[in-house]
């Protein structure tokens, strides 16, 4: 069975379970709307959903791009400089002890209700996984390659550019794959705390008006968006950063 077939079968099974729960428990539709109603809501509100999804998607993409660039550069800087490792790494680890959610109100205060605070949330949430998986890969370069390069008379900067970075790109790719799943979380948190557009905003709005079907519609849109993003990043990584073993 191919991956998409497995995905489809799994989705159908999920919908069947969902319908069964609705039928068996008789929950009112403002608590748990049946799948058919949600599908109808998605179709009826397609323009609205597309608009808000576009906003969220833009936040996620910009956050992802900036996070990848900043994370990549940080990892290289840390790998290149023992001093940077001593000074910055404890700070990075400490920063992970701060729940990202707790930063959202501050970011909204600093950056306002527009795209900026959401992009910052997405960036912050993916920065650590990108940096740390790339950094770990940079520090795991085959010692024999490094030895050979030194015998050849290489400078540390050229070893970094010609050997350590290319060798670590698959590690960077696994960081980016994680980032593609995390970045939407950051954007949605940002939207919950304060926004006038975006899927997170739409979900809160729908929830407040007991439009549970619309909330589900937004949720499903977000999930599909995240899956597509992950698939696209995965494909791009396979084409550019991964390499066949051997």
């Amino acid at each position: 069975m191919k991956a998409w077939q497995a995905g489809l079968a799994s989705a159908l099974a999920g919908i069947a379970v969902w319908q069964a729960v609705v039928s068996l428990t008789g929950l009112p539709r403002f608590i748990l709307p049946p799948p058919a109603l949600v599908a109808e809501t998605i179709w009826d509100n397609r323009a609205l959903l597309a608009h808000h999804a576009g906003i969220t998607f833009a936040e996620v993409l910009i956050g992802l791009a900036l996070g990848a660039i900043l994370g990549g550069l940080s990892a290289i800087g840390l790998a290149a400089s023992p001093l940077a490792r001593v000074l910055v790494r404890p700070m990075l680890v400490f920063s992970q002890a701060i729940p990202v959610f707790a930063l959202a109100p501050i970011l909204t205060l600093w950056l306002g209700f527009g795209l900026g605070s959401k992009i910052a949330m997405a960036l912050i949430i993916i920065y650590f996984p990108v940096t740390s998986s790339f950094f770990d890969a940079l520090m795991r370069t085959d010692r024999d390659w490094l030895g050979l390069a030194r015998v050849m008379g290489a400078t540390p900067a050229r070893i970094m550019w010609h050997i350590r970075i290319p060798a670590a790109l698959p590690g960077f790719a696994s960081g980016l794959r994680l980032a593609a799943v995390y970045a939407p979380i950051g954007a949605i948190i940002g939207e919950w705390v304060g926004a006038s557009q975006g899927l997170g905003y739409l979900m809160l709005l729908a929830n407040g008006r007991a439009k549970t079907d619309l909330m589900f519609a937004a949720l499903i849109t977000l999930a599909v968006l995240t899956l597509l993003l992950h698939a696209a990043v995965n494909k791009a990584c396979e084409k550019t950063l991964d390499r066949p073993s051997g």
Partner: peptide
């Protein structure tokens, strides 16, 4: 010059660029 049991060819480079890696590493 050094040659080991493991060929230490860089898997992401074509053979000719592997042969040229020393020059690239020295600039």
């Amino acid at each position: 010059a050094l040659m080991a049991q493991d060929d230490l060819l860089l898997p992401w480079l074509p053979l000719v660029d592997n042969v040229l890696i020393g020059a690239r590493l020295r600039g």
